[in-house]
C-alpha cells in the first residue's frame, strides 16, 4: 500500500477532471464546480441512492447512474446536462412536487425544480389528505383503484406526540436519511424504519407507536438530517404555525455544549433573542452534525428568566 492516494482522470461534459481514487462521481462533479442536485445524499451518511435526482449519463451504461454513490473509474465519460439527465431530474422533481409538500424544503430545491422546468401540477389536482393514521396502516400489495381525476399524495395530519419535535410526514420524500441517522450511521437507536411498500411506504416506529412509546431517545439527529422540514423542532413548528418564523432575522451563534466534556459544537439559531433551534456543523470532527438530547434540546433553561 502506498501512502499517496492515486489519482485518475475522467471526462465531465467534455472536460478532463482529475479525481482521487475511490471518489464518487458526485465528489468529482463538485470539485469541478458542476452544480448537481441531491436530496437523499449527505456527507455524513451512507449513500442510499434512492431519490435519483443526482443521476448523470455515463457512456456505455444502459441507464443513468446516481452520481452520489457511483465510484469514479479511470476513463469514465460523464454528461451532466444531457437531454436524458434533464428529463429524469425534471420528472423526479415533478413526481415529488406532486406528491409531497416541498414548501419548506429550502431555496435550493425550488431553484433546481425551476432549472429543470418541473411542473408538478400537470399530474392533476392533489387528492384530499389521508385521515389521521390511515397511511400508517396501509397493507402491502393490493389497493383500491385510485380516483384518476386527482393525484394521490402523502398528505396527512401532523404527528405531535412529544414536546421536543414534530413529524410532518406530508413533507416526507422518503430519503431514508432520518432512518440512517437514527440507526447505524449515527445514533444506533433504530427507533424508526421504513415500513410498508411502494407509494404507501412511510417512516414509522413499530406499529406506528408514538415516539414516546418507542426506542427514541430524542437526540434529534433525524431532524438534523431531514432535508424537507418534515422533522422540525417544536419551537420552529409553533413559530411557523403562528406565521412568525423569520429565518432572515435569525442569528446563528457557534458555541461548545456545556453539558459534558465531549466538546460538541453547537449552532444556536436565535430569533427575537430566543433560541429557536440547535444544530451542529456537519463537518465538525466531534459530532459530524449529530448531538444528544441535552445539546439538541436542553436550551430551555437559558431563556427562563423568572423563577416562580
Amino acid at each position: 500500500m502506498s501512502g499517496e492516494p492515486r489519482e485518475m482522470t475522467i471526462t465531465v461534459d467534455g472536460a478532463p477532471v482529475r479525481v482521487r481514487e475511490g471518489a464518487t462521481l458526485l465528489e468529482a462533479l463538485r470539485a469541478h464546480g458542476v452544480d448537481t442536485p441531491t436530496l437523499c445524499f449527505l456527507e455524513n451518511l451512507t449513500p442510499v441512492n434512492a431519490c435519483r435526482v443526482c443521476v448523470v449519463e455515463l457512456q456505455g451504461a444502459r441507464t443513468l447512474v446516481p452520481s452520489c454513490s457511483r465510484k469514479a473509474e479511470e476513463g469514465m465519460v460523464v454528461s451532466t446536462d444531457s437531454e436524458r439527465v434533464r428529463h429524469a431530474r425534471k420528472l423526479v422533481f415533478e413526481l415529488l412536487g406532486s406528491s409531497v409538500d416541498l414548501s419548506n424544503a429550502g431555496p435550493e430545491v425550488a431553484r433546481w425544480s425551476a432549472r429543470y422546468g418541473a411542473d408538478p401540477a400537470r399530474f392533476g389536482a392533489p387528492a384530499p389528505a389521508a385521515s389521521e393514521g390511515s397511511r400508517d396502516h396501509r397493507h402491502a400489495g393490493h389497493h383500491a383503484a385510485p380516483d384518476p381525476a386527482v393525484a394521490q399524495t402523502v398528505a396527512q395530519p401532523v404527528k405531535v406526540d412529544n414536546d421536543l419535535f414534530v413529524r410532518d410526514y406530508s413533507r416526507c420524500i422518503l430519503c431514508y436519511k432520518c432512518v440512517e441517522a437514527c440507526g447505524g450511521d449515527a445514533q444506533n437507536t433504530f427507533a424508526i424504519t421504513v415500513a410498508g411498500r411502494g407509494f404507501d411506504a412511510r417512516i414509522s416506529t413499530e406499529f406506528a407507536a408514538p415516539l414516546t412509546d418507542s426506542a427514541c431517545v430524542f437526540c434529534g439527529n433525524c431532524i438534523g438530517v431531514c432535508p424537507t422540514g418534515a422533522l422540525v423542532f417544536k419551537s420552529e413548528f409553533d413559530l411557523r404555525e403562528a406565521g412568525n418564523w423569520r429565518e432572515q432575522d435569525q442569528t446563528v451563534t457557534r458555541t461548545v455544549c456545556t453539558y459534558c466534556g465531549v466538546g460538541c459544537n453547537l449552532e444556536l439559531h436565535v430569533q427575537d433573542n430566543t433560541i429557536v433551534k440547535v444544530t451542529s456543523p456537519l463537518d465538525h470532527d466531534v459530532t459530524s452534525g449529530h448531538l444528544c438530547i441535552k445539546g439538541r434540546f436542553g436550551f430551555e433553561f437559558v431563556q427562563v428568566r423568572e423563577r416562580e
Binding site: V48, N49, A50, C51, R52, V53, A88, L91, V92, L95, L96, S98, S99, G141, I173, L174, V194, G196, R197, G198, F199, D200, A201
Partner: peptide, 11 residues
C-alpha cells in the same frame, strides 16, 4: 409491487 425505494418508480 414497487418496493418504494426510488422516486421514479414509487411515484
Amino acid at each position: 409491487e414497487s418496493c418504494g425505494q426510488c422516486v421514479p418508480c414509487r411515484v
